[in-house]
Amino acid sequence: MKDGWLYIVASKRNGTLYLGVTSDLPTRIWQRRTGAGDGFSKKYGCTRLVWFEHFDNLHDAREREWQMKKWKRAWKIELIEKSNPQWRDLWDMINR
């Protein structure tokens, strides 16, 4: 089974959030940054990677995504600010 990544991209600090899952985080974030596709993140300008978590398999990442999609917005913001209080774009951490 493939590794999985759960991630949050934002339009800006405290802006619109998008929670997603992928097996290839650098490629998926590049797609978000360049506006590839016609989805939610493109429509709302969610291009800044502000949080991510690695899982040993994609299934576990998807299960966690389903849980977190039910979370209140404040809980997601708290999660981001715990590890990334400045809401820095974490692209450089994954694009090596």
Results as ranks from 00 to 15, higher is better:
1 M>R: 09
2 K>V: 03
3 D>V: 14
5 W>Y: 13
6 L>S: 09
6 L>M: 02
8 I>R: 09
10 A>D: 08
10 A>F: 15
13 R>G: 14
15 G>Y: 13
16 T>W: 11
20 G>S: 07
20 G>D: 10
20 G>R: 10
21 V>G: 05
23 S>T: 03
24 D>V: 06
26 P>G: 04
27 T>P: 03
27 T>F: 11
27 T>W: 05
28 R>A: 05
28 R>K: 13
29 I>H: 09
33 R>M: 00
34 T>C: 05
34 T>K: 05
35 G>A: 07
36 A>L: 06
36 A>F: 10
40 F>D: 05
42 K>H: 05
43 K>M: 00
43 K>H: 01
44 Y>D: 00
45 G>I: 02
45 G>V: 11
45 G>Y: 13
45 G>W: 04
46 C>T: 06
46 C>N: 14
46 C>I: 09
47 T>S: 15
48 R>E: 13
48 R>L: 08
51 W>I: 10
55 F>D: 02
55 F>Q: 01
56 D>E: 10
56 D>F: 07
57 N>K: 06
58 L>S: 01
60 D>T: 09
61 A>P: 12
64 R>D: 01
65 E>N: 05
66 W>G: 04
69 K>P: 12
70 K>M: 00
71 W>A: 13
72 K>P: 04
72 K>E: 04
75 W>D: 06
79 L>F: 06
81 E>H: 11
81 E>P: 04
82 K>C: 08
83 S>P: 00
83 S>V: 12
85 P>Y: 10
85 P>K: 09
86 Q>D: 12
88 R>Q: 13
88 R>F: 07
89 D>N: 15
89 D>A: 14
91 W>A: 06
92 D>L: 04
92 D>G: 05
96 R>T: 09
96 R>F: 05
